[in-house]
Computed example of a mutant assay.
Amino acid sequence: MALLEVQSITAGYGDTEILRDVSMEVRAGEIVSIIGPNGAGKSTLMKTVFGLLHPRRGKVVFDGEDVSALPPYRIVERGMCYVPQVANVFTELSVSENLEMGAFLAKKGDIEARKERIYDYFPRLRERRHQRAGKMSGGERQMVAMGSALMLDPKLVLMDEPSAGLSPKMVGVIFEQIRQINDSGPAILIVEQNAQLSLRMSDRGYVLASGENRFEGTGQELLSDPEVARLYLGG
């Protein structure tokens, strides 16, 4: 059984439909990428999965439960977390305080041990644990956002454009850490502008175009598909 099932959802804002009859799934332990052109509905799909939007038709099933009508905090309680593209850290709080905010459902006595685990993932955050997040580089803030999301030991992590605005060197660092996070247990659903890099790392991928499913397959199948390469990978 899939950990996440998106079943023929239609969703949007106001009178505008962004997604139309979109389906996808993520199995336990997988990395799954969603790629497509700007305006394809990728971020809208992530927000609908996480409960920030509710589907007009279809449903979202997480770990065997229909979560389509649940608010985000209820979905977090069930083991899903979300790292948005922007506004993903508390800029006035320190690294340590940001991680504590991410652990809002954890027992107080567990928080320090959880932080130490995050520092093992991101040694740079241990070095800067007392620094305000707003004074950090874009790559470091992305580490803080990812670390905060991992504080609750999620089953599934949603990541929206984790490489946006980062230097090529930092993109490589972030993607290596995403792989390490996945190796430790949680499945990852990622929307990413760097489609080739994301698909190379992914077990499977989906291509959205104009709010609809266009292609799906393993990461390697999509990378090798000449039409996908021509239309979406710059090949």
Rank of each mutant, 00 (worst) to 15 (best):
V49Q: 01
T44V: 11
H54F: 03
I34T: 06
V32Q: 01
I34P: 05
D63M: 07
R56I: 02
G51Y: 06
P55A: 11
H54D: 07
A69Q: 15
P55D: 07
F62A: 13
V67H: 09
I35F: 11
T48Y: 03
G29Q: 02
K47N: 10
G58A: 14
T44A: 04
G58M: 03
D63K: 12
V60M: 13
V60Y: 06
S68I: 05
S33N: 05
A69H: 15
R56C: 04
N38L: 14
F62Y: 12
L53Q: 12
V67F: 09
K59S: 14
P37S: 15
N38Q: 10
D66K: 08
G58V: 02
G29P: 07
E30R: 08
I34Q: 04
N38E: 14
G64W: 03
G41N: 14
V32G: 00
M46Y: 02
E30Q: 14
S43R: 10
G39K: 06
L53M: 12
R56W: 10
V49I: 15
T48K: 03
L52M: 15
S43I: 08
R56D: 03
E65Y: 06
R27I: 00
T48S: 11
G39M: 10
V60R: 00
I35E: 08
P37Q: 11
G58H: 01
I31R: 04
F50D: 08
H54G: 08
R57L: 10
K59A: 15
T44Y: 03
F50Y: 15
G58F: 01
H54P: 01
